[in-house]
């Protein structure tokens, strides 16, 4: 108990004093997850709109598959990205193994199903008459998609935030394809995993607190958004 308490005190001190190592790791975590979330959003918003507004055979099945992939195991994605981008793999020549780029690619794969699925379900929550109204007022296909997304904006945003939350909190993938290299690919979660195994609880706790605060902020924003 005293160990935990002392650890907590030191952890809080590390945070308050803006310890460079803690800040650097937290900043990198945010940067990598924000990048993957932005890229995934840029893919999933248009794709979701296209899937939502078109009829095609197998649409129901496709949506079911996407929803199943919500709980894609991070290590499975990690393995996939590793095998793909390892120099001995099919596209190894890109030389991105153990770099933030590999982590971003993995996170995009990991969170895209969530963002896509939630975007589609947010769009299907919009009254069909909205699209009809837009079309009847002379909106093109793109303009119709934009106004429909706009009508679903709170639900869509909730989906994006969920995706970001998953990206920043996952560890298996970052460890496998990032390699937890100090000053380069070490994120909050991989650092916690390493520091805990090394017995350096203070740093792990400080990072853990930051991660919880981030999760808390995400949840608060999500709640605010969903109440709208």
């Amino acid at each position: 108990m005293t160990e935990l308490w002392e650890g907590l005190v030191t952890a809080v001190k590390l945070i308050i004093s803006l310890d460079p190592e803690v800040m650097e790791i937290a900043g990198r975590s945010l940067a990598i997850s924000a990048t993957s979330s932005t890229i995934a959003a840029l893919i999933c918003l248009p794709l979701g709109a296209v899937i939502h507004s078109n009829k095609f055979p197998g649409k129901r099945t496709l949506i079911n598959i996407v929803q199943t992939l919500f709980s894609l195991p991070t290590v499975a994605v990690g393995l996939f990205v590793f095998v793909l981008f390892s120099r001995a793999g099919p596209i190894g020549g890109l030389d991105i193994m153990f770099t933030p780029v590999a982590m971003v690619i993995g996170q995009v794969i990991l969170i895209s199903p969530i963002m896509l699925g939630l975007t589609i379900s947010a769009l299907s929550g919009v009254d069909k008459a909205i699209a009809d109204t837009a079309i009847s007022l002379g909106a093109s296909g793109l303009q119709t998609a934009v106004i429909t997304l706009r009508e679903a904006r709170f639900a869509v945003l909730a989906g994006l935030i969920m995706g970001f939350g998953r990206a920043i909190s996952e560890v298996g993938l970052s460890l496998m394809v990032g390699g937890n290299i100090a000053g380069f690919t070490r994120t909050i979660t991989t650092a916690i995993s390493l520091e805990t195994s090394k017995g350096d609880l203070e740093l792990a706790l400080a990072l853990g607190i930051i991660l919880i605060v981030i999760a808390l902020v995400i949840n608060l924003v999500l709640n605010r958004v969903q109440q709208r």
Binding site: R87, A88, F98, N180, I181, A182, F184, L194
Partner: peptide, 18 residues
């Protein structure tokens, strides 16, 4: 860039050229 790995994994990374 230092990757923390056991000898087995280090050899595997080496074989794959990573």
């Amino acid at each position: 860039d230092i990757l923390y790995a056991g000898t087995g994994i280090a050899l595997e990374y080496g074989m794959r050229g990573d």
